[in-house]
Computed example of a mutant assay.
Amino acid sequence: MSKYPRDEFDKVPETSSRQGVHRERLIPSRSGSLALIITVGVLALVLGLAAYFVLPRLGIGQGEGASAPASNSSTPAESPESRPAGTETAEPAPSASPTPSASPSPTPSPTPAAVVDRSQPVVVLNASGIGGLGANVSALIAADGWTTAQVANWGGTPLQTSVIFYGNAEQLPNAQELSRVLGIPNLRESPEFTLVTVAPGPGFQ
């Protein structure tokens, strides 16, 4: 019993099951808690099944797994030092496609050999001062098939050696052949001479 005097709020019987007109029951019902737990468990199960079956089909999470075996491979790469002695690396097969061959370059035609024309007459001018030398030279070239057009003495500037004169390039083969026959190595081109002219000088043998 309370020691305070009773008032209008004390009219409620003390044995009543009511705890207060303005309060609600604070203890939750067990049936609501059980339903919440079941709902959460079902949602977790559905999410797990979806992650297990659906995500692999979408390709999510497979990139890292596919590259892992390559990076964690325990087989060492073969190096030239690790190969057994006598083992050679196979060379790649040559390509079967035909290699375009270079077009053959035209073969240069050989330069025609110089033609010696013994039908061209030769002039002999004695520049040695020795009488009869011109006639002897004329006889030597006649023995090789040449024709002497004139035999005379040299009337120009005295020569220090024997010379064979020719007027142009067409006469050069004849001059070279006479040089071989007479042993005179000195050849001079001069347009003043219309025919190949042999001028035996001092020391001619």
Rank of each mutant, 00 (worst) to 15 (best):
M1E: 15
S2D: 15
S2L: 14
K3G: 15
D7N: 14
E8W: 11
D10F: 04
K11I: 08
P13I: 03
R18L: 07
V21K: 12
R23V: 15
I27N: 10
P28Y: 02
L34A: 08
A35Y: 00
I37E: 05
I38Y: 00
T39V: 02
T39G: 03
T39K: 01
V42M: 02
L45I: 06
A51Y: 06
V54R: 11
R57Y: 03
R57Q: 13
R57E: 12
L58N: 07
G61Y: 03
G63H: 08
G65Y: 01
A66D: 12
S67E: 11
S67L: 07
N72W: 01
A77N: 03
A77V: 05
S79A: 02
E81N: 02
R83S: 06
P84M: 03
G86D: 03
S95C: 01
A102T: 13
S103N: 07
P104V: 01
P106L: 09
V116L: 07
P121S: 15
V122L: 12
S128N: 09
S128I: 08
G129P: 12
I130H: 11
I130E: 14
A139I: 02
D144I: 05
G145K: 10
W146E: 12
T147M: 10
T148V: 15
A152P: 03
G156L: 06
P158H: 05
L159Q: 12
V163W: 00
I164R: 06
L172P: 01
A175G: 00
E177W: 00
V181S: 09
V196T: 14
G201L: 09
G201P: 07
